[in-house]
Amino acid sequence: MADKVFMQGNEAFAEAAIRSGCKFFFGYPITPSSEIPEYYAKKAPAEGLTFIQAETEVSAFNMVAGVAATGKRGMTATAGPGFSLGCEAMSYMSAASLPAVIVDCMRPGPADGEILGSQGDYNQLTKGGGHGDYNTIVLAPYSVQEYADFAPLAFDLAEKYRNPVVIASDGTIAKMMENVVLPERVEPKGRADWAVDGMNGRGHHNDITTCGDGPEQWERFNLDLQAKFAKIRENEQRWEEIDTADADIIIVAFGTMARVCLDAIRLARKDGLKVGMIRPITIWPFPEKAFANYIGKGKKFFVTELNAGQMVNDVKIAVNDNASVEFYGRLGGMIPSPVEIYNKLCELYK
């Protein structure tokens, strides 16, 4: 196994993406994502990468669409304000079945807001964000290791389903430094048979369009997309369970908050409180399957997020019992400490 290196989340992710064969990066600087474009810019000459600092996030996302259309690996990284601009292209890329990877280093909104960590883009990322009926796979890393591991995974999933994949990073995961084992280099695959890269001897032409040709055709097009999303929902729910088997209270937390809760669970268990956690790794598709074993068992579900409760409804749907779901969150870039969460758990136990 390769050696561990001590690296920042964004830089480890960028290096992992390069090793995953992503040779095209289009970015617009925005805190807390800027280390990713900076890393690409620095490595471009030696690694033979294409790096363009785009005029806007709108353009950066569309440049990624252009590369993805050729079947090659391309990427951009941004934060909430930039992702809002990119939502037009997210809708487009999903409709056009383009395998792009987009990183959102979430920061506290709304509007310009603050630059520290947040999970306030949950709804935007998991419910589409742009116009129309579409979804994108969203992976939420909780460590630098997972952030780096998600680079090759994101491209593999994007290509498997021909759909954009989002990495839901945040200001904390992005800037955090940890030990990480970087993924092995993969060689780029050959031409994709569906790609728009000039026929160049292919013998037939490929056309990608997202313009409907009458409501009947466009409904059929949409139903095909929905069938794809249903398949993703069936196959790609990912989560981790920690101490859930005997738990009275099951925490539901992802990303940074899941890390805080690891320590809160240890504090609780030391005091004999039976607390566990379901950690969604994909926040779309939401890991509903994880909850199936715990429905109707009298358990409490404690959702904690760095937002005003955006994941709560997904948990309520998954457990089919509104009354059993509690929420605690912090806003504005504030992150609760493990003791703060532990105290909330104690209150719930009363």
Binding site: F26, A54, A89, V196, H205, I208, T209
Partner: peptide, 16 residues
């Protein structure tokens, strides 16, 4: 071969 870009975005898609 062809791809249709969204409103005004053709030069960005073309760049990629």
């Amino acid at each position: 071969d062809s791809i249709c870009a969204l409103h005004g975005r053709a030069p960005a898609v073309g760049t990629g």
